[in-house]
């Protein structure tokens, strides 16, 4: 098998490159959102697209998430393939009615007559001191809803390859980008047909003593935890879930069957977050394999505060995960 050349890039640039390539490939693909054109996007993901494709396909919208999301859904029902940028996923709360009550149900309610090939993407989770209204992790809210697909990549390669899959998918896809990941570096194949399928978790660090299960930026935290533990001779396996809906329980369960212990790590509020769902799945299906209760590490159950010291208190870090690991090892 011929191996494609690898390109070094960042999480942000990988997303940009993917959108650019797909707009070039398919005239039905267009992007819309707040300040994504002339202003180049709040996180600069869409930089350069407006000069290249013009205002017909790179659309600066008014600040009205329900309205422009609804327009995207209507357009998608006729076969266009909109990519909706949420300035932050926190703002997608305004568009929940359009996304959940409309987009997610179109295929079902029409009995298969219509599809919504739409991607809703944007930064999800805490950035830096954006405080309570701009720091939500929304993926768990969406992963609750049948009809949506929800992905949360943790690596540069997955950001590129999973966005390809998202844009090609005929169903509405929520693609969440933790803002803390935008600057991480990595490689992607020099192949615009490259893609990463949904519904496949991956093992990013093999181990035998405990499974650290997470997604998005928490996978990076888990990798750092595994590094720490290895210094103590503890072998942790890092399971990067990356696709929440559909969820690849096989890979998670296989890891737990091997390690007999699991800690699930997620940035969302601990109570009712998606990590709680993963923990319960492990408890239900791997009961005989487990040597200890499945533990969770989630964000503190408080609105995200502004002061950096308080914000850092809320977001799970290496120390928080290590503490839970030590409780069951």
């Amino acid at each position: 098998m011929a191996t494609a050349t690898l390109i070094e890039t960042t999480f942000r640039d990988a997303i940009h490159k993917c959108i650019d390539e797909e707009m070039e490939r398919n005239p039905d693909v267009f992007v819309l959102g707040e300040d994504i054109g002339r202003y180049e996007g709040t996180f600069k993901v869409t930089k350069g697209l407006w000069p290249k494709y013009g205002e017909k396909r790179v659309i600066d919208t008014p600040i009205v998430e329900p309205g422009f999301t609804g327009i995207a859904i209507g357009a998608a029902m006729t076969g266009l393939r909109p990519i909706v940028e949420m300035m932050t996923m926190s703002f997608s709360i305004l568009a929940l009615d359009q996304i959940i009550n409309h987009a997610a149900k179109v295929h079902y309610m029409t009995g298969g007559q219509a599809k919504v090939p739409m991607v809703v993407r944007g930064p999800g989770g805490a950035a830096k001191q954006l405080s309570a209204q701009h720091s939500h992790s929304m993926e768990g809210w969406y992963a609750h809803c049948p009809g949506l697909k929800v992905v949360a990549p943790a690596t540069v390669e997955d950001a590129y390859g999973m966005l390809k899959t998202a844009i090609w998918d005929d169903n509405p896809v929520i693609f969440t980008e933790n803002p803390g990941l935008y600057t991480i570096k990595g490689t992607i194949p020099d192949d615009k047909d490259f893609s990463v399928p949904f519904g496949k978790a991956q093992i990013l660090h093999e181990g035998t003593d405990i499974s650290l299960v997470g997604y998005s930026r928490m996978t990076q935290v888990n990798l750092a935890v595994a590094e720490e533990l290895s210094k103590e001779g503890i072998s942790a396996e890092v399971v990067d879930v990356r696709s929440l809906l559909p969820l690849d329980t096989d890979t998670i369960f296989a890891s737990v069957a091997k390690t007999h212990r699991a800690v699930v790590v997620y940035e969302d509020w601990r109570s009712g977050g998606f990590g709680a769902e993963i923990a319960q799945r492990i408890s239900e299906d791997c009961f005989d394999d487990l040597d200890a209760p499945v533990l969770r590490v989630g964000g503190l159950n408080v609105p995200m505060p502004y002061a950096r010291v308080l914000e850092l208190e809320c977001i799970p870090d290496v120390k928080d995960v290590l503490e839970k690991v030590r409780r069951i090892l």
Binding site: P66, G70, T78, L80, M109, A114
Partner: peptide
């Protein structure tokens, strides 16, 4: 929720006001 997409009838929606943006989306397309 009646839909007949073949004849360009796009429903059939139950949230009051919810479909209006989608109607503009059809025109957008």
């Amino acid at each position: 929720h009646i839909y007949d997409i073949e004849h360009n009838f796009y429903g059939g929606w139950g949230i009051v006001g919810g479909h209006v943006a989608m109607g503009a989306g059809l025109a957008f397309a």
